[in-house]
Design a protein around this nucleic acid. Structure first.
Lengths: 113, 113
DNA sequence: GGAAGTAGTTACCGTTGGGTAAGTACCAAA
DNA sequence: TTTGGTACTTACCCAACGGTAACTACTTCC
């Protein structure tokens, strides 16, 4: 196997690992919403209007187990829960920026505006 | 709605549009493989060892309709087909780099190398 | 007491993403 | 004529992703 092919193989492995974690319709949008500051369940739901509470709950859990966000319960009245990005979550910002950037490019090229 | 919330909304819209195009297990890996040069069907299959011909064919078509790759048929003996990135496809390189970068970070943090 | 807001959970169901296996069609070399 | 290489397509099936709707539990406000 050539050097080039080896590099290709390694990049593919790492990229596919990363993809597994951020796959799906909702995980990236949730992380993006949290880059604007810590938010409560209801706030995220209001940002991402068409996500159901079931999916939001499910995806928040998945992001928590992958150490991308943390869940903090405040014993206030009424009980509130805040979600925030971990350092690992914050480390996704450049990735999110590039995704947004490319989204703009794609929009111009294909969608036509 | 505050200025911040408006920005959040707009970013969410564009990002979700972009996500739709690159979603799934295989599209990003295929594009990544093609950043190493134009390739034939069989070559991509050898790079991404566990992709089935069905999925490869299906995802190549999807990438073609979204103008990310082009399909060129060479009337040689035997007939060969080459897939290559369009300018829009090439514009994904920074995104792929960041995904790889983050993949490395994630690996260190969670998988534990 | 009833409504409304907090943060979810549960049950049910349908679509689609993806896997397996086999088949197609063409050509070349042995 | 059989094998092998090119590039797929087709049929079948299952699990996971995601949607809808209803329900829970607690508290405060009216």
């Amino acid at each position: 196997m050539s050097q080039k092919e080896k590099v290709c193989q390694q990049k593919l492995i790492v990229t596919r690992d990363a993809l597994e974690v951020i796959q799906g319709k909702w995980r990236i949008p949730i992380v993006l919403a949290l880059t604007f500051g810590d938010k409560r369940f209801g706030e995220i739901q209001r940002d991402i209007v068409d996500i159901s509470p079931k999916m939001l709950s499910q995806e928040l859990k998945s992001l928590e187990t992958n150490k991308i966000i943390t869940r903090t319960l405040y014993d206030s009245m009424p009980v509130t829960v805040e979600y925030s990005l971990t350092p690992l979550g914050h480390s996704m910002k450049k990735l999110l920026d590039e995704l947004l950037n490319w989204g703009v490019t794609f929009r111009k090229e294909v969608v036509g505006r």
